[in-house]
Simulated assay, not measured.
Amino acid sequence: MKHDRILILDFGSQYTQLIARRIREERVYSEIHPPTRSLDWIREWSPKGIILSGGPASVYDEGVPTMDPEILQLGVPVLGICYGMQIIAQLEGSEVAVGRREYGRAELSVAESDDLFHGFLPDESSQVWCSHADHVDQPPEGYRALASTETLPVAAFGHTERPIFGVQFHPEVAHTPRGEEIISNFLLRICECRPTWTAGAFIQESVERIQAAVGEGTAICGLSGGVDSSVAAALVHRAIGDRLTCIFVDNGLLRKHEREDVERTARKHMGVRLVVVDATDEFLVALDGIEEPEEKRRRIGHVFIDVFGRVAKEEGTGAGHLVQGTLYPD
């Protein structure tokens, strides 16, 4: 199944990953990309909507991230959050007011409860979280104010004809209790996304992609016992079965019973083929007399690569694919 997709353009916000998480909670697929993505790339990627994240900069600073103004002409719904709202205002010809820093809770009063604020009562007060220095006092021409706070005459705006919206607060954080409703309204009502991206769908699609990539070949995986490598190993094992070989390297620096826990989980619960190598002596020799933390990390990394490579040649059954699990932000 082809899922509807939301493109998040990241302007450096500390909350960008939270935006992606809120979208996932609505069972919609999203990806985070830099705002330097070209119009042609965005058209080809074909998002159902675009979210512009916040960021630490002022739109007036030199060398700050911005975006192609033609993005606002694509006909794709856009939601700007904090700095993202200010970018929209500036590109659309409105002045961004400078220098009134606000950090903390505020009470939002909704003027129009259609579209973005569907489900809110007119003039209903709702807590939101603000974290900004600049703000917008007047919406750009063709836009209307949708909400305000005591200090922000335009806490949210929307275009009168195009599906373009901006909010000066952060709906993605827990301190905005009804923020998930605002994000849901944008995704499901404005962008008309289908909520089809579930964990089950992700597993099935991942298995199919792995099977297509590996074919009749084999694979090896460095299994640490952590979430990342364990999930990767579980998906690949589901896809190709015993043609996956997992390698666990005991470096002699593990927590108590950690090796036994990994062996039990991998073999009994996951059912994978696991090779365990005790390389304690090699690691301890390499670390002997070393006190500087970064040098320790460097040596541990080098020894691990040497040990893993050696064992992979011995036990990897000529594997043509390497399985690696890592965090999404990395």
Rank of each mutant, 00 (worst) to 15 (best):
Ala174Asp: 13
Val167Gln: 07
Thr160Cys: 10
Gly104Leu: 00
Gly142Met: 04
Thr196Tyr: 05
Pro69Arg: 07
Glu294Val: 09
Val96Asp: 05
Ser13Thr: 08
Thr245Trp: 00
Gly142Gln: 05
Gln168Asn: 09
Val262Tyr: 12
Gln168Thr: 02
Ile81Asn: 09
Cys193Ala: 14
Leu108Lys: 13
Ser13Lys: 04
Ala97Leu: 08
Glu263Arg: 10
Gly316Glu: 10
Thr151Phe: 09
His33Glu: 11
Arg37His: 06
Val154Asn: 04
Glu258Arg: 13
Asp114Trp: 03
Tyr29Ser: 03
Ile50Leu: 07
Arg243His: 00
Asn185Cys: 03
Arg21Gly: 07
Arg189Asp: 13
Arg24Lys: 05
Thr317Ile: 07
Arg209Asn: 11
Asp281Arg: 11
Thr280Met: 09
Gly271Lys: 08
Glu208Arg: 15
Leu152Pro: 01
Met1Gln: 13
Phe157Met: 15
Asp137Cys: 09
His321Ile: 15
Val277Gln: 05
Glu25Ile: 00
His159Pro: 02
Phe304Cys: 04
Phe308His: 06
Asp68Trp: 07
Arg259Asp: 06
Val275Arg: 11
Thr326Asp: 03
Arg189Glu: 10
Leu91Met: 13
Pro140Leu: 12
His237Thr: 01
Val272Lys: 07
Arg22Gln: 11
Met1His: 13
His175Pro: 00
Glu192Ile: 01
Arg259Val: 14
Ala279Asn: 09
Gly318Val: 09
Cys191Ile: 02
Asp61Gln: 12
Ile71Gln: 05
Trp45Thr: 01
Val275Thr: 08
Gly55Ala: 06
Val275Cys: 10
Asp4Pro: 03
Thr66Phe: 06
Leu253Thr: 02
Ala213Phe: 13
Pro56Ile: 14
Ile305Cys: 08
His302Ala: 15
Ala312Arg: 10
Gly325Val: 06
Val214Tyr: 02
Lys268Ser: 11
Glu124Leu: 00
Leu235Cys: 06
Val76Leu: 07
Pro177Tyr: 13
Gly301Asp: 07
Ile8Pro: 03
Arg194His: 04
Tyr328Leu: 15
Gly84Cys: 06
Asp114Asn: 13
Val207Met: 12
Glu25Val: 02
Gln86Trp: 05
Phe120Cys: 03
Arg37Asn: 03
Trp197Asp: 04
Gly75Tyr: 01
Val28Asp: 12
Met1Gly: 15
Arg255Cys: 01
Ala312Asp: 02
Cys82Phe: 09
His302Glu: 15
Glu172Asn: 03
Leu235Arg: 12
Pro65Ile: 00
Trp129Gln: 04
Ala199Pro: 07
Arg24Leu: 11
Phe186Ala: 05
Arg37Thr: 08
